[in-house]
Amino acid sequence: MPKVSVIIPVYGVEKYIERCARSLFEQTLDGIEYIFVDDCSPDKSIAILENIIKEYQPRLKKEHKNVRIERLSKNCGLPNVRRYGINLATGDYIAHCDSDDWVDVHMYEEMYNKAIEEDADVVVCDFCSTDCENEQYSKGLISKERENVIVDVLLWRIAGCLWNKLVRRKEYTDHDLNYPTHNMGEDAALIVQILWNAKRISYLPEPFYYYYMNQTSITKDVSDDNKIRQRFLQATANVEIIEQFLDGKATGKIKDALTKYIFEQSYLLVSLARKNKEDLSIWRRSVGKIRSRVYKCSYLSIKNKLVFYFLLFKSVI
């Protein structure tokens, strides 16, 4: 049985897949399972990957590292690809790596050793965001106390992502998780559930993961109103997963943090809602459920609250 399974979605990354794959195959930990999931990539990503696998085959065999390329019959999107990989994983722990990012060669050895040393369900590391010219260091964790970690995720104090976290596989298999199916905010929708169920969270204050800030990402496009609207609706669906999961469990500070999280996600549509009656109606249906919570929310400024109630009651002609 592998120590760690690493799940790597592949779609349209022919410019980046070599860098990612080499950083994975150079890992110092023996006993890794790499699961590359081809989401019907339209470019040469898989051909490039296959060539790199051939190059590394002697080393991979010697270090008990197994590489699988799983091909989907149709394009399913990132959340579904990750779930597909999770269902195939056999390692004691599961990690995720996006195929336009890369990792430090010591990442999985250090994180796995930390997990074993502290019997951790989740291990978190720091990371760097980079466009290959500029680099920004980010802490992966502020507090190791479960409720504080969830609050920090919802308040964007730390990244609510999967790729800088090593998770015991049982945290996926032994709980009835509600998996997201939409792209916007899908990591947070899943990681909040995992963090809540985790008994022990450990932390390595080392920037092992390198997140590539791809300026051509669809999430950077603010010129197309339809795309903005679609991203909002996707984010709203994933917020609903978090709300349903935390219903009846959340403490006061988590409820307040969730209120602000919903408020922040609603800003995806605010620019359109200010000028368009239809978008304002969509926005109101989404945030109407928190109208009474906004007033009491300790994490929202007076300015935030004024903007919220102005839009809630304004008219568009």
Rank of each mutant, 00 (worst) to 15 (best):
Y179Q: 06
D39P: 08
D119A: 11
E206V: 12
K170N: 14
S99K: 02
Y295F: 13
K114N: 10
S202I: 04
D30T: 12
K74H: 13
L60A: 05
Y11Q: 07
S292M: 11
V239H: 02
V307E: 15
Y34R: 01
E135N: 08
H96C: 08
I94A: 01
G185F: 04
Y16G: 00
R71T: 14
L195R: 02
L246Y: 11
E18L: 12
L162A: 00
I302G: 13
Y299K: 02
R229N: 11
W196G: 07
V153N: 05
D187Y: 01
R284F: 02
K54V: 09
D39H: 07
F313T: 10
P180L: 04
A21C: 03
Y108I: 03
Q136F: 11
C40E: 09
I317M: 05
S99I: 03
N197M: 04
I52A: 01
S292G: 05
K165V: 02
I46W: 08
S301V: 03
E109M: 12
T236G: 00
V123H: 06
V10F: 04
C125H: 06
R231S: 13
P207M: 05
A89P: 06
T251I: 05
P207H: 05
I241D: 09
D221Q: 12
I317G: 09
K227T: 14
V316H: 08
K275S: 12
R22A: 05
V13M: 07
A189L: 01
I35Y: 06
P205D: 10
F308E: 06
G12H: 11
L162C: 00
K65W: 04
K170R: 14
R83Y: 14
I194A: 03
N87L: 15
E243Q: 15
D131C: 08
L72C: 07
I242Q: 00
K165S: 01
W163L: 00
D100C: 05
Y179T: 09
S281P: 00
D279N: 14
I282T: 11
S271K: 13
